[in-house]
């Protein structure tokens, strides 16, 4: 459940942030989402990876598809790739990596201030 909530927060916050701020603002969103919501290393990483990865993947795929690849095919060729859909995949993976590590950092940041559960500071 926390995984889903965290992922949704990352997607929504990043979406609105990207409308007004540079691309790296989404890393900050992911970081905070990781810091606010508790979890485990792997689950925080993947909610960042999947959240931002899918956000960029879907957004770029919509553009690729709506524009019939008019630009993505050309950019792909600049990168010596045969089809614009590879740009969609690269875009998604790249955002995923940024998202995963940022969320994980946020989570590990939170952990700096939490004691072991046995000490019972946060419950």
């Amino acid at each position: 459940m926390r995984f889903i909530i965290r992922t949704i927060i990352i997607v929504i916050a990043s979406h609105f942030s990207l409308l007004y701020f540079p691309w790296w603002s989404m890393a900050i969103c992911a970081f905070f989402a990781g810091a606010i919501i508790d979890g485990k290393n792997l689950s925080t990483f993947f909610s960042g990876f999947l959240g931002l990865g899918f956000l960029w993947l879907i957004q770029s795929f919509i553009i690729h598809n709506d524009s019939a690849g008019i630009l993505s095919n050309k950019i792909a060729a600049l990168f010596s790739l045969s089809d614009g859909v590879y740009m969609v995949i690269i875009t998604g993976v790249l955002a995923g990596l940024v998202g995963g590590f940022s969320t994980l950092s946020g989570f590990r940041f939170r952990k700096l201030f939490t004691r072991d559960k046995s000490r019972g500071v946060y419950r």
Partner: peptide, 14 residues
């Protein structure tokens, strides 16, 4: 460059 909101994707107009 790859940011679908601001990067090259934003130049796709068709």
């Amino acid at each position: 460059f790859l940011d679908p909101y601001n990067g090259f994707w934003a130049n796709s107009e068709n």
